[in-house]
């Protein structure tokens, strides 16, 4: 088990190197530079050249890369040109809102999806099943920003129950925190819910056909006990994979929803940094996200064993 984890962590290194090279050169070879953004449209070339030199842009690109990568390995991702703080600090500061949003929307998604998915599987072929599948098709096809705008229109503009946009940290109180996050979480969670619901349904259908469920039924077990204790648990592996993957996208792919609802998360950080060509932040954040993704996959793999004892890792040998 431990050996497996260490192995997996080691396989991270080549991935990081490739990502680092790609993101560094992609960022630096894109036209536009932070100096022009900082000094404004009408600054003279002379003034710009001076600042470029001070920021080290006059060095050859590969030298800049080596300097940066050396630092990155030692945990120093450089300082942002605009945020006036180290990139690692910025990353964790912006991760908070994103993580909060991701967790809330994942919880919403899982609850909704499991209920609907199980319901659809149990009532297969009925109107209920088709309705659930219809809703989830809708959830997958409608982009989250559109859902977000409609939610704002209904709950904030018309009913005026919830704020239009913004973010309040948890330190302002859980109620306030949730009040600002509930709409974006629904907008973001809708697609995840749809994906998970579909997977739950099909996975449940497979399991319900197996012999041990038939045995359980013939033993006269309560239908709810069969569904939730026996069927759902063994149907959970593929569902967990979808949840894991979708959690990854929730963390990294919330940029649009974060923009619509004005939440200062990782997505906004990347978008803003690209707009102002804040190279250290773009590079650092992408690297950190890569690490997060790889670690998340590892956690999911380990969780398989917890959920289903049949796939304990040491039995694979």
């Amino acid at each position: 088990m431990l050996k497996y984890i260490v192995q997996r962590l080691f396989s991270l290194l080549p991935i990081l190197l490739v990502v680092a090279i790609v993101v560094f050169f992609l960022a630096h070879l894109t036209p536009g530079d932070p100096v022009t953004v900082l000094l404004g449209d009408e600054a003279s070339e002379e003034t710009k050249a001076e600042l470029r030199k001070e920021l080290g842009f006059d060095l050859p690109l590969y030298t800049q890369f080596i300097l940066w990568f050396k630092g990155a390995i030692l945990g120093d991702l450089g300082d942002s040109y605009f945020l006036k703080m180290p990139v690692t600090q910025a990353f964790f500061e912006y991760l908070g809102p994103t993580l909060s949003l991701a967790i809330i929307s994942q919880i919403i998604a899982i609850i909704v999806a499991l209920v609907l998915g199980v319901l659809a599987a149990k009532k297969r072929g009925t109107f209920m099943d088709q309705a659930v599948m219809g809703i989830s098709l809708f959830g997958i096809s409608v982009p989250s920003f559109l859902v977000g705008l409609f939610l704002i229109l209904i709950f904030s503009v018309q009913l005026q129950w919830l704020p239009v946009a913004g973010y309040r940290p948890l330190s302002d109180g859980l109620g306030e925190h949730l009040r600002y996050l509930i709409l974006p979480a629904i907008a973001l969670g809708m697609m995840q819910a749809a994906l998970i619901a579909r997977m739950t349904r099909s996975s449940m259908l497979d399991v319900m056909k197996t012999n041990y469920i038939k045995t359980a039924k013939s033993k006269g077990l309560h239908p709810n006990k069969i569904t939730f204790k026996h069927a759902l648990r063994s149907a959970f592996i593929p569902i967990l994979t979808v949840i894991g993957e979708s959690f990854g996208t929730l963390i990294t792919g919330a940029a649009v929803v974060e923009t619509v609802f004005n939440i200062p998360g990782i997505g906004q950080l990347i978008v803003n940094s690209i707009e102002r060509r804040d190279f250290p932040v773009i590079q650092g954040t992408v690297l950190m996200i890569t690490v997060t993704y790889v670690l998340l996959n590892l956690v999911i793999d380990l969780l398989y064993g917890v959920v289903d004892p049949r796939v304990r890792l040491n039995q694979r040998k």
């Binding site: 705008l149 704002i152 503009v157 704020p163 239009v164 946009a165 619509v260």
Partner: peptide, 16 residues
């Protein structure tokens, strides 16, 4: 800082 224009409009019409 509200970069999305429709959010700015919704926010000012609701009094936020």
């Amino acid at each position: 800082i509200v970069t999305d224009e429709s959010t700015r409009v919704s926010g000012v019409t609701t009094g936020q």
